[in-house]
Design a protein around this nucleic acid. Structure first.
Lengths: 163, 163
DNA sequence: ATATAGTGGTTGCAAATCGCAACCACTATA
DNA sequence: TATAGTGGTTGCGATTTGCAACCACTATAT
């Protein structure tokens, strides 16, 4: 498909601007869901299997995911590319906006609030962790739990960050 | 409509996740298009009038725009709310990603590049300018041209920022 | 007063997309 | 040999998209 215009905002909207693509990426990034069934059954919004299949094809075509077929069995494993990892600031901005201006469940809002409270460095830190998980980059040395682990801990505990 | 989940990312996607809403906002923000015809005729992607009408209704319902009817004549003037102004970081993140990972025309890419090169403070500065234009907030004192003026100048000249 | 251009849209309709439900081939395990 | 799990596909009705034409009103020019 040829783009409707040469504007980079439009180009991004043509790839990511629908009701499911960014949610699939959210689940890959924050939920570490790498397989079809994990994305299908784990989707709190209840994505349909044909829609998920279509979005996975599109995201691979767009260079956001890669589809690695494991040797034995037909289990397809999806991984983020660098382009996919760099959608995180978009998802972060969307989440912050939703947190400020739209209703939601406190349980799910806490994760976004923690992420914001950790400051912009957290996004970079999480992107680095995704690079080691999805691209096989060497893990950066750091003490204590990684960013995803901290998010999960906050979510599990329903923690609100103290001022 | 009830949301599909309580996740703030999903909530934002439900409001902004389609192929036109963010482009309308882009034209309001960067093109200062405040009227129906200006948005319709100025759209480089060629939005249809019924789609534009629908999106304007939805954006008003979502609290992103307000529809002010001028006294004489029926010219409807659309203004950003604070929630609308705060979609700028989303659009900024999308544009940066499109700039890095998708093709586009050099002419339209220059604007996004300038915006990024000015650093994160530029987004805040532009949001302040939008507050004076759309919300009637008092203008902040500053020497030299405002952010929108600088963007337009860069666009007109096809300028690339020097290192 | 009458015509012309511009405003903010609405209406019809065909094509594409969405999304529910059922189904399928294959693999791994019991 | 059955059962569960994998990664999907197929059918099909409902919804959304988007092109084109049209409409009522206002402002301006003749």
């Amino acid at each position: 498909m040829e783009p409707r215009s040469g504007c980079p905002i439009n180009a991004a909207v043509e790839v990511l601007g629908d009701r499911w693509s960014l949610l699939v990426l959210r689940d890959v990034i924050f939920g570490d869901r790498r397989h079809f069934r994990a994305l299908l059954n784990g989707s709190i919004e209840g994505i349909a299997s044909n829609i998920l299949a279509d979005r996975l094809v599109r995201l691979v075509e767009a260079g956001i995911l890669t589809r690695g077929t494991a040797a034995r069995g037909q289990r397809a494993r999806y991984s983020l590319t660098e382009a996919g990892i760099q959608t995180l600031p978009i998802i972060y901005a969307l989440g912050n906006w939703g947190l400020d201006w739209l209703p939601g469940s406190e349980e799910l809002r806490s994760r976004q609030r923690l992420m914001r409270d950790e400051g912009p460095a957290f996004v970079e830190e999480l992107m680095d962790e995704l690079r080691t998980r999805h691209l096989g980059a060497p893990a950066k040395p750091h003490g204590g739990p990684g960013p995803l682990e901290r998010l999960d801990a906050a979510h599990a505990a329903g923690v609100q960050t103290e001022p």
